[in-house]
């Protein structure tokens, strides 16, 4: 079941992207595999784990600029134009292998906001070890297992909200 849905999703993604590519034929630009700047633009909103690098065209063999034609030299990664959706830009990258789309990656999600490099920096927060006496620690927010609406009523977060409202 799960595989079926996944396959469906990626097929559907491919179709959607093909459609949107059709409307953006000219601006297609080729890019070498991993260097599309997913990380630097913070497009997926996190992680240096290189979500954008995946399986796409390891060698970046062609690196040419035409979107349509496919050479016999192997896979080619093409990054499409930004598509504007209700909630922000979506940009996808497809890998074409011998004329067939073998991978579709979303390199920019509508989660994106114009966050600058400073905002994307991450410094590990400081873990404070001093014993906390009730009432003497200033706390802005509380993280814990997800409470229900009812559980919230008696939560520490609820007390903080009451104090701040």
């Amino acid at each position: 079941m799960r595989r079926v849905i996944l396959a469906l999703v990626s097929t559907v993604t491919g179709l959607v992207m093909l459609l949107s590519f059709k409307t953006h034929q000219t601006p297609l630009t080729a890019s070498t595999a991993a260097g599309t700047g997913t990380g630097s633009s913070g497009s997926t909103g996190s992680s240096s784990s290189g979500s954008g690098s995946s399986s796409s065209g390891s060698s970046g063999t062609t690196g040419t600029t035409s979107g349509g034609g496919t050479t016999a030299t192997g896979s080619k990664t093409v990054t499409g134009d930004e598509a504007q959706t209700r909630y922000g830009p979506v940009q996808v990258q497809i890998t074409v292998n011998n004329g067939r789309i073998t991978d579709v990656e979303t390199v920019e999600y509508p989660t994106d906001t114009p966050r600058d490099a400073e905002i994307n920096q991450f410094a590990i927060p400081e873990l404070n070890q001093e014993t906390l006496q009730a009432g003497n620690a200033h706390i802005d927010m509380v993280s814990g297992a997800t409470y229900t609406s009812n559980g919230y009523i008696t939560s520490l977060q609820s007390a903080l909200d009451k104090a701040g409202l």
């Binding site: 927060p125 873990l127 906390l132 620690a137 706390i139 802005d140 927010m141 993280s143 939560s155």
Partner: peptide
Amino acid sequence: TVGVADPHDRTHVLTTLTG
């Protein structure tokens, strides 16, 4: 400053993180 709720006593903060 964010408090981490003690999973064994939800009215208690286990530690805090600042950043």
